[in-house]
Design a binder for these strands. Structure first.
Length: 566
RNA sequence: CGGGGUGUAGCGCAGUGGGAGCGCGCCUGUUUUGGGAACAGGAGGUCGCGAGUUCGACCCUCGCCACCCCGACCA
């Protein structure tokens, strides 16, 4: 690969519309080009990285016993209606019609298609298990594409689907996929953490996300500082410190004009927020639900949705509250009738608390659970906060940002039952296949890798996914000796199977060095009039080191040069 | 979908009711060559699109579109 002929130029100035590091650098270094929102062209350097990532994925998937296939992008909407996911995906599903006015969708994922496929090919438990994967373009009309390759509408994804006769057999394959994923990410040179995840509306018991920790990530991850507990915020649990307090004031109604927030109550009464009961009203599938939670905590809406089994929830508007006779800012479970009340387990306490009075401008003080009010349904509904105690070991939890680069699910029989993907078991009975699914975002790995591997000069590629191992920077290209030496090294390294780029442009040294740093190839080999004069040498620099860390090697010792750049 | 912002040369940006500009990049030539060289000459525009106001609109008004950011959303 000669930079003089390379399609795709580096930019000298930062692109205006990119403010996350990976987005900015991938455009600036000439890797990607946006066509419309969330849709990119991949130029030669990017494609090289993507192919490397794909190769690593293929090798590990094959090793784990999965077989590669390729499924259609264009799919009949009918199968999406059958699975109920035409509605579930909603606007995210790209829809179109063919010339016969038939409804089609562009596949955002392939559970429906694969289940139909396998249904037609597997009849007996003897044919199971199978694990099929593909690397395919997926299309999702995301509400808001963002951050370059991190969240796009058209993207390459590796997805695998496994089919089993028993749950235990699924468990085995699932574990195998988890360890294959760990190999994939570690071979890519990325520090990816597996975390427990909520399995959402798709159902199924186990689910793990694979997260690359980076500050610009859009997912929140809870990690324990003392053990290996790791969970997605939606799923994370914690032990909440109990509040100990002996004061028993007795229930009193107090005039609190205009004091509607936990913060204001805390200041007014000079009490910690832990001694105030927060009332949060939701509308879940059309019905009002009051959620009670300790004042210092927030509601985890995913936990609430899962507990209620609701399709949709939203925080009740003031209008919706007044319709039910509730007074915004002064809501209370005391004396409330006809409204379902659920509580986070933090409300079950021995402590006197302040709570609304269901009356404009009044609160109660000295309210006690079990005496003045009782919340029958109390379960874990709170959002973990920084510093909470780990449920596994009692250590301190931290909240971290990250990018989801992989996700594995135990699907169970949801799809096989819907599509009639059954098999004849050894006992002669017909059973639905037990399924698992396993996804990895290929482009997203590239984006996330750059996000977590760069400095102020540019990208710093992990070796395994870099477009090349070494970039030869030839200075003084009009000097025939330099030119010949650089080209000889280029050809020799290619002959030895080293992936090498040569910057053979007639540019000033500053431009070449800056571009080499920007593109982020792990090793730079500089050949110049100076290095030739200096004992016919080449200067090797590791991209991760500072500029003064140079190794001088004789040009005729190719073995040493290869050793230095691999 | 709610809120905010931007749209002028390949990229980054300035601009005024009456001549469409600057920096970088690009082309030609000369001189340069170890951290984004210098000089000289040059090419490149539907000022997002459409209506309106005006003698005259890149500029004012209205409508539309696109893109970015925050939020909602993210099987």
């Amino acid at each position: 690969m000669r930079i003089s002929q390379l399609f795709g130029k580096t930019l000298r100035e930062d692109p205006a519309d990119a403010d996350t590091s990976s987005h900015r650098l991938l455009i600036k270094a000439g890797f990607i080009n946006q066509l419309v929102s969330g849709v990119y062209s991949y130029l030669p350097l990017a494609l090289r990285s993507l192919k490397k990532i794909e190769t690593i994925i293929r090798e590990e998937m094959n090793l784990a016993g999965a077989q590669e296939i390729l499924l259609p992008t264009l799919q009949p909407e009918e199968i999406w209606k059958r699975s109920g996911r035409s509605v579930a995906f909603g606007e995210t599903l790209f829809k179109l019609k063919d010339r016969r006015d038939r409804d089609l969708v562009l596949g955002p994922t392939h559970e429906e298609v694969i289940t139909e496929l396998v249904k037609g090919h597997i009849r007996s438990y003897r044919d199971l298990p199978v694990n099929l994967y593909q690397i395919q373009t997926k299309l999702r009309d995301e509400a808001r594409p963002r951050a370059g390759l991190i969240r796009v509408r058209e993207f390459a994804m590796k997805d695998a689907y496994s089919f089993h006769s028993t749950q235990e057999d699924l468990d085995k394959t699932y574990d195998g996929m988890v360890s294959a994923y760990q190999s994939i990410f570690s071979r890519c040179g990325l520090d990816v953490r597996a975390v427990d995840a909520d399995s959402g509306a798709i159902g199924g018991k186990d689910s793990q996300e694979f997260i690359l920790l980076t500050d610009t990530g859009e997912d929140e991850i809870v990690l324990c500082g003392s053990c290996d507990y790791a969970a997605n915020m939606e799923k994370a649990q914690s032990n909440i410190e109990r509040v100990i307090d002996d004061t028993k004031g007795g229930l009193k109604e107090v005039y609190t004009p205009g004091i509607k927030t936990i913060d204001a109550l805390s200041k007014e009464f000079h009490v910690p927020q832990t001694k105030i009961l927060k009332s949060v009203a939701y509308v879940a599938d059309g019905a009002l639900v009051l959620v009670m939670i300790r004042g210092d905590l927030d509601v985890n809406e995913t936990k609430l949705v899962n507990y209620l089994g609701a399709q949709n929830i939203h925080i009740a508007t003031d209008v919706e509250l007044r319709e039910e006779g509730l007074i915004p800012g002064f809501i209370s479970p005391l004396g409330l009738e006809g409204v379902r009340v659920v509580g986070d387990h933090s409300v079950v306490s021995e402590v006197d608390v302040i709570v609304g009075a269901n009356r404009e401008d009044y609160h109660y003080t000295g309210a006690r659970h079990g005496f003045d009010f009782t919340i029958a349904e109390s379960i874990d509904l709170n959002r973990v906060q920084e510093g909470h105690e780990c449920v596994e070991c009692g250590g301190k939890l931290t909240i971290n940002k990250g990018v989801e680069v992989g996700h594995v699910f135990k699907l169970g029989t949801k799809f096989s039952e819907t599509f009639g993907a059954t098999f004849l078991d050894s006992d002669g009975t017909e059973k639905p296949m037990v399924m698992g699914c396993y996804g990895i975002g290929v482009g997203r790995i590239l984006g996330a890798a750059v996000e977590s591997n760069h400095d102020d000069k540019g990208i710093v590629f992990p070796k395994a996914i870099s477009p090349a191992q070494v970039i030869i920077v030839a200075l003084n290209t009009d000097d025939a000796t330099v030119d010949a030496a650089a080209n000889l090294l280029y050809e020799t390294l290619i002959g030895q199977g080293i992936e090498v780029i040569i910057d053979d442009r007639d540019e000033s040294p500053g431009v070449k060095f800056a571009d080499a740093d920007l593109i982020g190839i792990p090793f730079r080999a500089t050949i110049s009039a100076r290095s030739i004069k200096n004992g016919n040498t080449v200067e090797i620099k590791n991209r991760m080191d500072g500029n003064d860390q140079l190794i001088h090697l004789p040009l005729d010792d190719v073995g040493k040069i290869i050793e230095a750049v691999t």
